[in-house]
Design a protein around this nucleic acid. Structure first.
Lengths: 167, 167
DNA sequence: TATTGTTATACTCTATAACTATA
DNA sequence: TATAGTTATAGAGTATAACAATA
């Protein structure tokens, strides 16, 4: 499928004649550039399903961990409790998940994917898998493996983290 | 510097007992995880300077391309014109950049970094460089080079892009 | 007609703080 | 006291659409 030539991508990897200075020497900025390009493709492919990266990740995790509590989901996704409320509310209002009371802990809500949510997720999985192959198509299987390994090693070490320690 | 043990990081790379399903096999999701971890460290280190990744990137580009127009800056950063207005307004209200009329094109505004902005940027550069070393400290110089090369190759090809072509 | 920038508006994502109910 | 979730509020960051001025 060829994209219509009249719809230019918003993000140009490099704008001719512009000096990028320090940005070119930062691992973090190369990561950001790649992410913008990837997000653009995800959006184009999954938008019609009303699916964002965030919602997709949540649906996969709920689906693979039936009855997971909201707090746990938030820790997995790296977002605050209040953010989970909004996110889950969005999934619920789309009819993709249900929240059921936990018999053991009356404070908690257990999340499950509905039949409709499962169908939507199945369609999304196919598109996301195709999307992921598309964005990494210029990498060999071995290079893909190396990339994932290196990405997993990124991040500040526990012992040296944070430029400014908090109180 | 050790982070206070009582302040847990919000994002855990892996939550024990949780199944990540398809997410573990997606290059895009590994990228996202790495980015969350990196953003966390950036925020901790640069927050005191009132600097976000976005503002930092803009300041570096304006500084390295004195007199760049807003539209061009937007193309470099990959954001819409209306977003540039907000971003630049924020930089201006902090006294970090000025907007001057373009003698050749009365529609355009040319951006420049003020002395105060240059000083702030110099301080930020040092912290960002340290931050970037910190997040990639578990990579050798060679691995870092490989990572950047692979990241640059990520993204959909022009000819095959987009799951759903737009009208 | 096309481009530059602005404004209005809205949605997503995220946060903190104060709150309720429960453990 | 601590935890699970909610609500209220806020601030980035991003988008689209309609607009004015200029090219």
């Amino acid at each position: 499928m060829t994209r219509s030539a009249s719809i230019p991508k918003r993000f140009e990897r490099r704008v001719p004649g512009v000096r990028y200075g320090l940005l070119d020497r930062l691992v973090g900025y190369h990561l950001r550039r790649a992410q913008i390009a990837i997000y653009e493709d995800f959006e184009a492919a999954l938008g019609p399903l009303d699916m964002t990266p965030q919602r997709f990740a949540a649906m996969v995790v709920i689906s693979a961990n039936d009855g997971i509590a909201q707090g746990r989901l938030g820790r997995v996704l790296g977002i605050a409790r209040s953010g989970v409320v909004q996110l889950v509310h969005g999934l619920q209002s789309r009819g993709w998940v249900t929240r059921d009371a936990d018999g053991d802990d009356a404070r908690a809500w257990l999340l499950s994917v509905t039949d409709e949510g499962a169908a939507r997720l199945a369609a999304a999985r196919r598109l996301v898998s195709a999307h992921d192959r598309r964005i990494s198509q210029r990498l060999s299987a071995e290079e893909r493996r190396v990339l994932v390994t290196l990405l997993e090693r990124l991040g500040a070490d526990e012992s040296t983290e944070g430029g400014t320690p908090r109180p």
